[in-house]
């Protein structure tokens, strides 16, 4: 498990996080969502120990992330948005780096390479941005690290690669692993998230499972101005409104992530009130 306890961090005198508390549990794929500059990448860097919190603690697998303990690093793989890779072949990279990971599975690595259309003889610094991301994903999954952090993973990937990427992630998650994906490409990833974490100006606005959101919130379009006033959040669309309201039926519906994102940015407290309410309150 990853837990942030009263975490504070800033750039210079500008505080970004102040007393941040949240948890990321195993067996789930988290979507870390927020606007540009909200603090998504910083949060991932704090979890990796690449940045050091000023106060509070970030625990990863019961270890203080700041210490960059090799036991933590062995069980944590981070795919940053921009990265450096040495000028060596994919196979050489495997030979040099795989021994650092106790559970590295070369068979799985080669299988992912094949699926992602990469050749093990290709030299890393000659690959395009998208191909390098594919390589890192293949390597990261093969390490069998319990924590996988991805920062804007779909940037630079073509459409077929995005599909393979989603499939690989969905098939690799299990009860001993946790994946955290920071992205603003919500539409591309909405099918694989189990939990959504919304972040804005260094605050966690919401951290809930997608199933809970779909059970307690209802997303629908209405014609004209009919009942838009009673909705928690509404946006004008041609011919009517898109609204979010309490799901009174209790049957899980489809969650429009982009719409939910806008709603959380503006009305997070009202949404939390509904999510925290017991289902019975909305009966009949």
């Amino acid at each position: 498990m990853i837990s942030l306890e009263d975490l504070s961090f800033g750039y210079g005198h500008q505080m970004l996080f102040s007393g941040l508390n949240t948890e990321f549990e195993f067996g789930r794929i988290y979507g870390l969502l927020g606007k540009n500059g909200a603090g998504k990448t910083t949060l991932l860097n704090l979890v990796c120990g690449l940045l050091r919190a000023e106060t509070g603690i970030c625990r990863v697998l019961d270890m203080d992330a700041r210490k960059r303990d090799q036991r933590m690093l062995q069980d944590l793989f981070f795919i940053p948005e921009s990265f450096y890779l040495p000028p060596i072949s994919i196979e050489r990279y495997r030979q040099l780096h795989a021994p650092f990971y106790a559970s590295f599975d070369s068979g799985e690595f080669y299988s992912h390479l094949q699926e992602l259309e990469l050749d093990r003889k290709q030299v890393l610094n000659t690959l395009s941005y998208g191909l390098t991301k594919r390589f890192l994903l293949a390597f990261g999954l093969a390490t069998r690290s319990r924590v996988l952090l991805l920062d804007e993973p779909t940037n630079g990937l073509d459409i077929p690669s995005k599909r393979i990427f989603r499939r690989l992630l969905a098939s690799s998650i299990n009860e001993n692993r946790v994946f955290i994906i920071a992205t603003h490409q919500i539409k591309e990833m909405d099918t694989i998230f189990d939990n959504l974490v919304f972040i804005d100006h260094g605050r966690i606005l919401l951290n809930r499972s997608l199933s809970e959101i779909s059970e307690k919130l209802s997303f629908r379009n209405i014609a004209g101005a009919e009942s838009a006033e009673g909705a928690v959040y509404h946006e004008a669309i041609p011919g009517g409104y898109s609204i979010i309201e309490a799901n009174r039926s209790g049957d899980p519906g489809v969650v429009d992530l982009e719409f939910l994102f806008n709603a959380v940015m503006e009305r997070s407290e009202e949404l939390i009130d509904i999510l925290d309410s017991k289902q019975e309150a909305y009966g009949d």
């Binding site: 960059r68 690093l73 981070f78 990265f83 040495p86 650092f100």
Partner: peptide
């Protein structure tokens, strides 16, 4: 001193001492 290379170095699963 470079962000990308620093990330590469610090994420290698070895201790700070090593």
């Amino acid at each position: 001193r470079q962000k990308e290379r620093g990330t590469y170095v610090f994420m290698i699963p070895a201790s700070v001492e090593e």
